[in-house]
């Protein structure tokens, strides 16, 4: 079918796929960050939130698979386009080549991409699968009993008294090794850089960008990326500086 050929076989089609998947992933990372910032509230918040997400069951898996497909397509498109572009450049390199105006973030988008990929794998191993740092993984920690209801859109989704995994504790303990936190900080820094070019770029690829508002777009994108970096920085930063401490171990029994 022509449509499939054009989307998966042409340079613009692949860029389109990259932009669309990028858009989904941007939505995810921002949502993910906002959710995680609940760590600064009472442990009931983030623990109730995590419990709620897990209670979604098949929906959670659908979202997870969707995200994995996006990551996969994003990486596939990037890889294929990169290989083609290298080939297109030809075998004889320039003796001298200067950049004229490409922004810093765009020059290193591939490198930031590689590190971000490494980071995602570690992050999943750390907080989702529990392979890395298994000792502080949520299943190894005592359960948490909610002291208040957890609401979504005004509906109580997890009532007070429910015993849930102590994600709050996992996050705080997980970031206590300075090396882990530093790696995390460097990686979100690079992810922000990746987004700085990627967010701006997706408007171009989807054909929405033009000179009459490209400066405003650039400003908004830059502010979002700075906000993202700051938001992602404060969690390990607060743990490292001791501003965020493990909650006193009041609950003893493990979660069901």
């Amino acid at each position: 079918m022509n449509l499939v050929c054009n989307l998966f076989g042409s340079s613009i089609g692949r860029k389109f796929i990259m932009a669309l998947t990028g858009l989904v992933l941007i939505g995810f990372v921002f949502g993910h960050l906002v959710g995680n910032l609940q760590v600064f509230a009472h442990p009931d918040k983030i623990n109730g939130y995590a419990h709620f997400l897990h209670s979604l069951g098949p929906v959670l898996w659908l979202v997870r698979i969707g995200l994995l497909v996006c990551v996969g397509l994003h990486i596939w498109a990037a890889t294929v386009l990169t290989l083609e572009s290298r080939r297109a450049r030809g075998s004889e390199p320039y003796g001298v080549k200067t950049w004229i105006q490409a922004v810093f973030a765009s020059r290193y988008i591939r490198w930031s991409g590689y590190v971000v990929l490494g980071f995602i794998l570690y992050h999943l191993a750390h907080f989702t699968v529990g392979v890395a740092q298994a000792g502080t993984y949520k299943t190894a920690l005592p359960a948490h009993t909610l002291t208040s209801d957890y609401h979504v859109l005004g509906f109580t989704v997890v009532p007070a008294g429910t015993r849930v995994h102590d994600v709050h504790q996992m996050v705080v303990l997980g970031f206590q090794p300075p090396l882990v936190s530093l790696f995390y900080i460097v990686a979100v820094g690079l992810l922000s850089l990746h987004l700085l070019h990627g967010m701006d770029s997706l408007f171009q690829t989807l054909g929405w960008r033009n000179a009459s508002w490209s400066r405003s777009l650039r400003t908004v994108v830059t502010l979002l990326c700075v906000a993202y970096f700051a938001g992602s920085l404060v969690i390990p930063g607060a743990v490292l500086t001791g501003a965020l401490k493990p909650a006193p171990a009041v609950k003893t029994a493990s979660a069901q």
Binding site: N6, G9, S10, S11, I12, R14, K15, L81, E84, S85, R86, R87, A88, R89, W99, I100, Q101, A102, V103, S106, R107, I109, H197, D200, S201, Q204, T205
Partner: peptide, 20 residues
């Protein structure tokens, strides 16, 4: 576009070196 691809040109990474 399809001819452009077939002739071995690369893809756009939105760096705008071209217009500069």
């Amino acid at each position: 576009v399809n001819t452009m691809d077939a002739l071995g040109f690369g893809s756009c990474t939105n760096q705008y070196e071209c217009s500069a």
